[in-house]
Design a protein around this nucleic acid. Structure first.
Lengths: 242, 242
DNA sequence: TATTTAAACTTGTTTAAACATGTTTTGCAT
DNA sequence: ATGCAAAACATGTTTAAACAAGTTTAAATA
């Protein structure tokens, strides 16, 4: 439920673009028109538009207007890296039948090596979780999660098999804010070949991510290993001349 | 040369973070302090901070302050996907010795198949350019570019061997604004094996991108095929509850 | 001492207005 | 009809101020 005005406006305009009511190449109504329509100031409209611009939906043109540069058909991809989405959210949007298998669930303590790799302090207690994501009966993703126990107390294998983010947000009332992700490709390891349906592929697309909560604490480090032909990461950026 | 105030402020704070003067975990001075220091209003400070937040440098915390969540050592990567950087810019920042070999340069017309793939209109005249990027004497990247001729008139193989973006911005005075990129991994093709030093890797990391100019015209479609162990894409995102 | 309350911070949202700057349209003079 | 200048309109930047809401600190109370 969006409470702030600029979020509501953002959402309304985005929906019009995604549904094709305003199509590729067209110009949006002017900021002043929107301000009158939504009974707010131009500043508030501009805030909504700046989100749309940052997400690659529209392109503001000085003196001309704001043009739509989004093609609805362009999102064949399963995942979007231009935002934070949990696996459950992403697959839900893509209407796939998904099963999560919990391969391992234990509590470990971060040693120096793990600390270097993940960024957690040495001695931190962590939930170590391995999961396999089965999409339409094919094992496509191998996830390894490290959750900081002090911030995510109460995780269970059962929760891990459903949605950890659902638990963190709705039960622990944690607010997830910022994440940082790296995308690389690597040769498949023995474990990848064992756990995933890689067919003839002998490499995987690897996404590692660090996630922060609203207290500024990094509470999650995750590595996801994907079958390369089944995933695609989309990102949009705005050049800022600095 | 940044002209606007918020850009200058953004840059100053970013430099302090990147140089380690304000280190990981610390809080920035408050918005009011910055406003007084830079002799501007809080709004202008907030605009600079919102860029830093969007780029994953800082994490604003309601009621508490703005915390630095950037580790300077974390950027071993060559490329950043969280922004628009030309190859020349990125390699320049990473202090590598780089040579660009132009493998092919011709003018073609978009047929239906190419139009579907790239998004250019059927019949568009395009510069077709193939380039190999040699970093520290190793051929690591194979680039295929399509530039819309009507917007990039005057491209030559010589320009292609240096920096096309330099030509577009400084000579044609084009303003590059928004880009959209997709990251996937694919099996190496014969051409990849011929042109690149792939060693034992038989797959490549593929980045395709569409770039728009300030007139809202998509003028570039590019596919870059990278040796997977030499590249890494970093992205940061801010979750917005909508 | 321990607990509660209030004050003094912090960031978040929104309004209002002025001016800058780039683009398109209009209307006038040729 | 053509060309040009002015007006109208678009987005971009910045200031100023008020209020909302979350966090920390300090004072007052039990």
């Amino acid at each position: 439920m969006p409470k702030s005005k600029f979020e509501q406006i953002y959402r309304m305009i985005r929906d019009e673009i995604e549904s094709g009511q305003i199509s590729y190449g067209e110009f949006l109504p002017s900021e002043n028109e929107y301000a009158a329509r939504f009974n707010c100031t131009r500043n508030t409209v501009r805030r909504a538009l700046s989100i749309l611009s940052g997400e690659g939906f529209v392109l503001p043109q000085h003196g001309r207007g704001v043009q739509v540069i989004w093609r609805p058909d362009a999102n064949r991809s399963i995942f979007t890296i231009g935002g934070i989405e949990s696996f459950a959210e992403a697959t839900g949007r893509n209407q796939k039948k998904v099963v999560t298998r919990v391969n391992s669930f234990k509590i470990i303590t971060a040693d120096e090596k793990l600390s270097m790799k993940t960024g957690f302090d040495i001695g931190s207690e962590l939930y170590y979780i391995e999961r396999v994501r089965v999409v339409d009966n094919r094992a496509l993703i191998f996830d390894t999660n490290y959750f900081l126990r002090s911030e995510t107390e109460g995780l269970t294998p059962d929760i891990a098999s459903k949605s950890i983010y659902h638990y963190l947000e709705d039960e622990l009332h944690m607010t997830i804010t910022t994440s940082r992700r790296r995308v690389t490709a690597e040769k498949a390891l023995k474990k990848d070949r064992e756990l995933l349906d890689l067919d003839s592929y002998d490499f995987v697309l690897v996404v590692t991510g660090q996630v922060f909560n609203s207290k500024g604490i990094m509470f999650e480090y995750t590595q996801s290993r994907h079958r390369p032909d089944q995933v695609c990461f989309v990102e949009s950026a705005v050049r800022q001349k600095v």
